[in-house]
């Protein structure tokens, strides 16, 4: 049996109680601090959000009461600015937010960039990008030279893409980290038109991930200026690039000439034939019917289905499909045409 004196046990219990008491006090203190922080933040939002509205939207004179005093008020301003930037487009408002942030928020974020905590540094990087605090570009470059994480580097690239596009392109050529297509898309979507178009100029120098992301971003931007660039890629050696260019052109949805697409009707790749079937939705049936009729007799189900759907979308489409059913000898094509006709008639 272990021999412990009552006195020793009481001392241990007393010590534990003291520790527990100190811990409770600490929690209580932290809780109070947090409440105080939240109250200060909410009070600022309540008292000054209308003043911010008047200043930003109605050109009222800027009041010094809006200048933040302490972290809670900075966070309140972040919430207000974020609400505006996410919901409203207004160049004047954006400019005012940028000017204010570059003067009054800069010292807070500069301090945050030097923090040892990753989450604080990340938050600062997000805000610098969102509020366009270009005065902190040098501080960001300094941060890059320290031992930072991949996500921080990604955020830095976003900042460079907005503030110094040349530096962004330089950095992306020698990647410190390899990103996925979707991550590259997130970077490219922020680029100005003149910077983004440069990716097409040096297209073959980029790795496949970036090439795919460039094509997909051009499609997502739905900008007609990229149509010619995408058309040029239709003659590229890599099949994946050709298919993605076709998909991009379909998504932009403006087809002025069907000639570049005709060779794909007989492509060896069913994905390319499928995309042509989709692209022809944007062209009157009179120009495309002969090709769509070929696609309707394709060996691939997806291609046949798309060709039938594209034909059916035209005003004369149903009649054309019925004519095809009556005259064709291709059983698969006839079945597909019958299915689409039945579906279309059922929707009426």
């Amino acid at each position: 049996m272990i021999g412990l004196s009552i006195h020793f046990l009481l001392s241990v219990i007393a010590l534990l109680l003291v520790l527990f008491f100190i811990f409770v006090l600490y929690l209580f203190f932290q809780r109070e601090r947090e409440n105080h922080f939240l109250t200060a933040r909410e009070t600022y939002i309540k008292n000054y959000s209308q003043c911010w509205y008047e200043y930003l939207f109605n050109d009222e004179i800027f009041s010094v009461v809006l200048v933040p005093r302490g972290r809670a008020q900075v966070e309140a301003i972040e919430i207000i600015f974020s609400s505006y930037l996410k919901n409203i487009i207004n160049e004047n408002v954006r400019q005012k937010i940028k000017e204010f942030s570059n003067v009054y928020l800069i010292k807070f974020y500069a301090q945050d960039l030097r923090s040892k905590r990753w989450s604080i540094r990340m938050n600062a990087l997000y805000r610098i990008s969102e509020l366009h605090i270009d005065e902190l570009l040098e501080a960001c470059k300094k941060l890059e030279r320290t031992n930072i994480s991949e996500t921080e580097y990604f955020q830095l690239l976003k900042i460079y893409s907005s503030f110094q596009p040349d530096l962004f392109i330089e950095k992306i050529k020698v990647p410190n980290a390899s990103y996925s297509e979707s991550e590259y898309r997130r970077l490219f979507v922020l680029l100005e038109e003149d910077v983004f178009i440069r990716f097409f100029d040096e297209f073959d120098r980029w790795p496949a991930n970036i090439q795919y992301a460039v094509i997909d971003t051009a499609a997502a931007k739905k900008n007609m200026k990229y149509i010619d660039r995408l058309k040029q890629l239709l003659t590229h050696d890599v099949t994946e690039i050709k298919i993605r260019a076709l998909k991009g052109l379909f998504e932009i949805g403006v087809i002025d000439d069907i000639e570049p697409f005709v060779p794909f009707v007989t492509s060896d790749f069913w994905e390319a034939r499928l995309m042509v079937g989709k692209i022809f939705k944007h062209v009157p049936l009179t120009y495309t019917y002969s090709y769509l009729e070929l696609l309707l007799q394709d060996e691939n189900w997806w291609v046949r289905s798309q060709a039938a759907k594209t034909i059916a979308e035209d005003r004369e489409g149903l009649a054309k499909l019925q004519q095809f059913i009556a005259s064709s000898s291709d059983q698969y094509g006839i079945e597909m045409a019958q299915e689409i006709v039945a579906r279309k008639q059922g929707n009426r």
Partner: peptide
């Protein structure tokens, strides 16, 4: 849902 944007729309 966003209270600030709601207020902006209301004003």
């Amino acid at each position: 849902q966003n209270v600030i944007f709601r207020k902006v729309l209301e004003t």
